[in-house]
Structures are given as C-alpha cells and as structure tokens.
Amino acid sequence: MLKRFVVKKDERGALLREADFERILKSGRYRFFDPFGRLSLVTWKADAPMTDLGIVDYLLQHEPAVAAEHFERMELTEDQAGLRYENDVLVEILPPAARRFVWKGVVRHRLETVDLRAGYAVAPEVAAHLVQPALRGRAVMGLGYLLLAQVPAYHVGVLKVDGKVQRLMPAGVEGFWRFNRDIQVELVDTRLQNMEVSGQEILSRDKVGLRLNLAATWRYTDVLLAYEKLSKPADHLYRELQFGLRAAVGTRAIDELLENKQTIDEVVGDYVARKLDGFGIEVSSVGVKDIVLPGEMKNILAQVVEAEKSAEANVIRRREETAATRSLLNTAKVMEDNPTALRLKELETLERVAERIDRISVFGGLDQVLSGLVSIKNA
C-alpha cells in the first residue's frame, strides 16, 4: 500500500501522479500511500541544467514561488548572448533567446550577458581563455557561436563582416560573435613571398611553341588597399604575370628570346609594375627559370649550331693556311737575297734528316753531302 522513493544527494526529483506533475522532491527518502500504483518518480542531476522545460514553465505560471525556490533562472533576449559560469568557471556560451534553468544549492551559477547591438567583438580576456579549448580541464559548450582568430607574427588579419572589409588585425588573439552576421578573418603574410608561374605554353612571333617557367618575388605594401580593390590579390598577381609573360614572348622571335632571356624579365617586370600600380602590391623581382623547346625545334637548332661552328672552323683553318703560306713566301725571299740564310736552312734540313737516321757515313766531306742534297732537291 505504501510506495518508497529515494532521491540521491546529487539529484532532484519530481513526483508524478499518472504521469502528471505533482510536486518537486529534494534529496531524501519518501513514502507515499499508493494503493493503485499511480505514483512515479523522475530524477535529474542537480549539477546540470533542467532539461524538462515543460515542468519549469508550469511552475513559473502556476507556482512561481516554488520555481524561485528550486531554480536559477537564465533567459536571454534576441539581442543578447550569454556566458554561463559554474563555480566561476566558464562552461557554456548561450545564443540569443536561449533559456536555462539550473538547480539551486549544489553549484554556484552565474550568467554574464552581452549586448550584441554594441558590437561583435568578444572581450579580450574571454578570447584568451578560449583560444586553446583542448587544453582546458573542462570543455566549453557552444564554442561554435564564436570565431576565434589567432594572427601569428609577421602576419595581419583582414576582418570581413558581411563580406565587407572592416579593418586589419595585428598579431595576437581576437574573438568575434557570429550571431546575426557573417564574419571572416583572412590571414596575410606581410613578408616577401615567392610565386611560381609554371608550364606556360606560348607561341613566339615566328610561331614556335615554347614552354616557360617564371618566378617572381612580391609583397604587400598596403594590405587594406589590396583587399578593398581586389577580392583575391594573389590570384590577380598570378594572372598579371601570365599576361606579362605572353606579351613579352608573343611579340619576339625565338632567336631574340634565346639570345637574351633578360629581355623577358625586363618586359614582364615593367608590365606587372604598371598594371599593379595603386593596388597595394609590389613585385620585387621577376625571372625566367626555363625555356623549353619542342623536340623537333631542338634538333633544328642543334643542326644550325653545328653548321655555324663548322663554318667558323673552316674560316680559321683557311686563315691559318694563308698565314703559313705568307710566312713561307717571306722566308724564300730572305733566302734568295741572303746566301747565309739559305745555308742555315740547309743545315736545319740536314738536322731533321739526321734525326730519323741511326747512322750516317760521310765520304768526301760535309760540303759534298750538302751539294748532293741540293742536287736531289733540284731534281
């Protein structure tokens, strides 16, 4: 005939009669006369928010004193956000129009409200505590309602609200409320950066297909100006480098391009500097890394180079032969006018002959040998 119920010390309960709310039960042991088995008990953890808001709304409407005795009331308007603390530790971020009812007497509860009409920036101390949520001893619910942006050194952050650039963010941590607005932060490196424009296939003026690879070094001179005028400054720079390369290669013959690649660098650099003037971007250097020729053009150029070098070799050979002949002619004139020089030449010739003979037998003296040599030459 009696039904016994137990509510633990860390719980709160509600007595139901035929599944309808009867009254709130604090922790303890209860006995009720229930001959027909109509009573039942529902319990909740006392250190967690009340999940059955139907019972809370009933108490607020019909028994407000009971609701005030058992619950801490937390309600936000459409223009407010909330920070819910338990024992002075942030545990939850509440969105606008949120409702929380927590049990009194177990945990100290506190709610801080934020007026969203006053701005979209989160208090710096709150952002600093939440920037590394994985390192906290207790997780924070509702982090998705915030945008936490950490800007590293040598970078700036471009803050965009509803698609419009608002300001630049210095290095550090900042947080923003996402409610009622679209907020984005884009990180920008302010140091010198490299950009590769690879695999550009372009026809030269004489209709030769070339593949070129270009490298450029650039940086932002005015980040805010660049993002005000261009949606994607880096993409815009890449396209201008492409156009500049085509303007440099398409108006020149292949011989001119191969003889002086620096011409391409100068033309592309001047073109890009002119196109990017007033956009907050500066190109420090531009250089062509490679010029790749088609296979058949490589063979043709190799044949041309071989023919040029062969012709140069023939010219040098003829020049040397002419010089040797002229030298012989001068020597002959000297010998004709000077018998002593002729005699010295004869001795030189004899010396060359003697170098190739192991043994020489001379009869009649050296003069006779020389006379014989002269006779042989005349014959």
Rank of each mutant, 00 (worst) to 15 (best):
V185I: 12
Y154L: 14
P170D: 14
V151C: 11
A149G: 05
V173K: 05
R181H: 14
V165P: 04
V188C: 05
R191Q: 13
Y154R: 15
D162V: 11
N180G: 13
V156N: 05
V173A: 12
F176I: 02
D182F: 09
H155A: 12
I183T: 11
G157T: 06
G175C: 06
P170Q: 11
K160F: 08
V165M: 00
F176N: 03
F179E: 15
W177N: 00
Y154A: 15
V158N: 10
R167W: 00
V156Y: 00
G163H: 05
V151A: 10
A149R: 04
I183N: 04
P152L: 06
D189M: 07
V185C: 07
W177Q: 05
A171N: 09
F179N: 05
W177L: 06
V188Q: 01
P170W: 07
W177I: 02
T190Q: 09
L192T: 10
F179L: 01
W177Y: 13
V161Y: 05
V165G: 00
L159C: 08
M169C: 13
R167V: 07
R167S: 14
F179S: 14
K160I: 00
P152Q: 10
Q184Y: 02
R178L: 14
P170H: 10
A149P: 02
E174G: 14
G163Q: 08
D189N: 15
K164A: 01
G172A: 02
R167Q: 15
L168P: 08
F176K: 00
Y154V: 12
Y154S: 15
K164Y: 04
V188H: 03
L168M: 13
V158C: 13
R178I: 06
G175N: 09
Y154I: 06
V188N: 05
K164S: 01
A171K: 06
E186F: 10
G163S: 09
Q166N: 09
V161M: 11
G157F: 08
D189T: 11
H155G: 01
P152K: 10
G175K: 00
L159I: 00
Q184G: 00
R167D: 08
D189R: 12
L192F: 04
L168R: 08
V151P: 02
K160M: 13
R178H: 08
Q166K: 08
D162Q: 11
D189W: 08
R178K: 15
N180T: 08
Q184L: 11
A149D: 11
V188M: 07
G157S: 03
R178P: 07
G163V: 07
V165T: 04
R191G: 14
A171L: 09
E186A: 11
N180H: 15
A149S: 15
G175W: 04
P152R: 06
K164I: 03
V161F: 09
V156F: 06
K160H: 11
L192C: 01
F179K: 04
V151G: 03
R167N: 09
R167C: 13
K164F: 02
Y154N: 15
E174A: 14
V165D: 03
V185S: 04
V158A: 10
